[in-house]
Nucleic acid binder design. Structure first.
Lengths: 338, 338
DNA sequence: TTTATTTACGTAAACGTTTTCAGTAAATGG
DNA sequence: CCATTTACTGAAAACGTTTACGTAAATAAA
């Protein structure tokens, strides 16, 4: 079976390839009658343009790369949803890459993407990332990048985040208002922008209420679930005065539930918990978890839109800008006043 | 700044483009010394081959397309994880497309993918899909497709699924053993393979225990959450004899919890619930939800591997085959015997 | 009428890579 | 010593598109 490409269409219609190409692009240089003939045959033969030939020639791929730590975190699932929505509206395609929070993998992915496979990148940096040379190398390669959620302050570009500092502050204050005096912070990572901001909010809220910071009460994620729970168990046993937990990432809140159960600490009577989470079903938890819920879908969509808007210009330079979409504290029973 | 491509490398090294290309592919037709020179300069200039030129010439994109209903369903998140893992190991890329269970969107996506953007497709069909002409058109276009989870029996290709029939049977039998006599089935869709299989398992289990089928007790998903809950509420009120619920998709189990709470039906005392779910945190539910847990990650990885293996041959024909990975019933309190 | 301008199409180059085909020089075999 | 192979390299075509340029005819302006 002969392939159906422009050449084939041109032959069957006794036209040149150029005219066929132009007809399909609805160019004004082609008569209405010819356009109609071309379109009819293209439809009949189910012509589909070769994306690679087109990309090669136009030097643009109509594709954006999404580089994220993991897709099992519900935040990123929702964000992908928003990204796909925006991309589809602009006829763009979405390539997904997972770093698994591994710096080396992130470097390899970014390096590869410089080959022109994508026109732009949406990035949420890996927690293992400290050196950012690979990200900086994108600018000279003319590949714009928009950070979402986990940003990289050293790079001048567009960021879309949520109000992490305020959320950390608010969560902490919420626990204080509920009567907590010794609040632990289960921290996503102090290497990440979001981790630092949430931690700072936590610290400032304590200070505002006259409580001294206590490094002993801050537990960063080890990326190993069993290990996390062990550290937390050890902490709760060593510090029976802990009466509040602020988990700055979903899975740590879940771990906190498990450990509290195991140790017989009642929630919220003995320990009150607030956690970042985008899981709808937290309302079914026992007890329902008070959450900081991020506008994940909107964050993804907004980041994609900014990127896509920039890509429509010939020289996609992204001005430094920060879009902040607010998270929401949803109060449930896990932090109710005893 | 001059672009760094094969031409540039060739010029700087006083070699032909052909030799540079061959050197980078470690061809035996190039001397070791030349290879070394080429590699050194390529590394120094951070040469990255243009993926589109390469794809165009070789007529293969090193990319697979993943077409799924939604990414917010945890099953698909986990599956993507497995797919990405397999793809990365084979140096393949992953394009994501969401159908949102909309047939028209699925058709458009598939049609577009015939343009050569992907070498193969992993597909989990939309619940709205009845006509499968668009899928059938992939074979003549030489694009292999592997179904996972939601298969299309009419198409002769590889399928990767879980043992849906047995799971439906097992879940129902589990509820019967726990003392239920009137078991409702909240069905994902009777248009989907998985829906039909789970429903058949449910029916057969009832029959095996001498219970007549009751169409009144089967509620298919309406894809509208509020509407689902309304129908369920109405059902539970109309049929106070219902003492067991089998939800063949996660979000319907969650809805069942909400409605039961609202109506004051105690779980598991009044109504016992079993649901398909891949959410880890169901163990924190009140009460913890008994689940059928699918090996989602493995299903994705296996489907991807089968596809990738086929793509390595020059003429990727996938023999009809069905790989079945077993789901697991994890018993928790929501189905405990009163 | 002559000269611009517009309309509609064709020719051919280009995008960056891979690969076929030749070609040269050196090495090997008889 | 000639014939043949081997080792390396280059020229050029090809993949399917887009687009700058050219051109002929038709129309408008003079």
């Amino acid at each position: 079976m002969k392939p159906v490409n422009l050449k084939r269409l041109a032959e069957e219609l006794n036209l040149s390839i150029a005219t066929v190409s132009r007809a399909l692009q609805d160019s004004h240089e082609v008569s209405a009658a010819t356009k109609e003939r071309v379109r009819a045959l293209a439809a009949a033969l189910h012509y589909e343009p070769n994306a690679y030939a087109s990309s090669l020639r136009r030097n643009q791929s109509k594709t954006i790369g999404v580089v994220i730590p993991k897709v099992t975190n519900h935040f990123f699932s929702l964000a992908i949803n928003g990204i796909e929505e925006a991309a589809r509206q602009s006829n763009y395609h979405v390539l997904i890459y997972l770093t698994h929070d591994d710096h080396a993998r992130e470097v390899a992915i970014i390096q590869h993407l410089k080959g022109g496979r994508v026109d732009g990148i949406l990035l949420s940096v890996a927690s293992g990332t400290e050196d950012i040379a690979h990200i900086q190398s994108l600018a000279p390669a003319n590949i714009p990048v928009v950070f979402f959620d986990r940003v990289c302050a050293e790079i001048a570009t567009a960021n879309v985040t949520t109000n992490d500092y305020e959320s950390g502050y608010q969560a902490t204050e919420h626990l204080l208002a509920a009567g907590c005096h010794h609040i632990a912070h289960l921290l996503i990572s102090n290497n990440l922008s979001i981790g630092r901001n949430r931690q700072q909010g936590y610290l400032d809220a304590l200070q505002a209420h006259g409580l001294p910071p206590d490094a002993d009460l801050v537990l960063p994620d080890t990326t190993n679930r069993a290990h996390n729970e062990e550290l937390l168990r050890e902490l709760l046993q060593r510090r029976p005065d802990i009466d509040g937990i602020f988990a700055s990432v979903e899975h740590l809140a879940v771990s906190a539930y498990h450990v509290c159960r195991e140790l017989g600490r009642r929630i919220p009577e003995d320990v009150k918990i607030v956690g970042f989470s985008n899981l709808e079903s937290v309302s079914l938890f026992d007890p329902p978890l008070t959450t900081i819920t991020q506008p994940a879908h909107d964050i993804g969509r907004e980041a994609a839109r900014i990127l896509l808007r920039a890509l429509e210009k010939k020289r996609p330079i992204l001005p430094s800008q920060s879009v902040v979409l607010n998270s929401e504290l949803v109060q449930r029973r896990s932090s109710e006043q005893g």
